[in-house]
Amino acid sequence: MNIFRLAGDMTHLLSILVLLLKIYATKSCSGISRKTQELYAIVFVARYLDLFTDFISVYNTFMKVVFIASSLAIVWCMRFHPMVRRSYDRELDTFRHYFLVGASFALALILHEKFTVQEIFWAFSIYLEAVAILPQLVLLQRSGNVDNLTGQYIFFLGAYRAFYILNWIYRYLTEPHFTRWIACVSGVVQTALYADFFYYYFISWKNNSKLKLPA
């Protein structure tokens, strides 16, 4: 464990707490893409298949359970909670996200570390996570205005993988034969997808103005 990875995990946890706060406090999920949340639930379930077979550390197991439980809880809320589901922007959240699932799985069948069920699902989860934010970014472009909590949620979600890139650089420099090409390349693509959001987020923060994304 290094400071970059810890910062990344804490930022990731913070993004989930901000989203839970938004949904719980406002009893609304307006501006949140349910499709992106469903993709994250698939990412965590597919990635943590080793939850019961490989014990790495208490921290590792605890965080895996938190990520799986929170992502499923958010999807459940957005689908079944009477108050929350009414505020879902159904007509704006139209990205065909099942294509992302299919393409990520197809890529995982081709590019993986080992041809085993666990490794293919791990690679699948890495590729899917890289593109999972797309429905959310498309929804924001369409809805134009972004409320503060949603903006912070997406900012922390993008920032966490940027910390992981620093972690991979650090581990590459300090650990012999550390190579994680699949996670590294995918992580760079994932962070790059946030580039324009980060740009407009920074501008709005500098001008102390409302975050507006160009339609």
């Binding site: 990875r5 990635r47 080793d50 791990w122 972690n167 034969h177 996670a183």
Partner: peptide, 10 residues
């Protein structure tokens, strides 16, 4: 990577 060493990152 040592054999059997699975992914230690989240």
């Amino acid at each position: 990577k040592p054999p059997g060493k699975h992914h230690d990152e989240l």
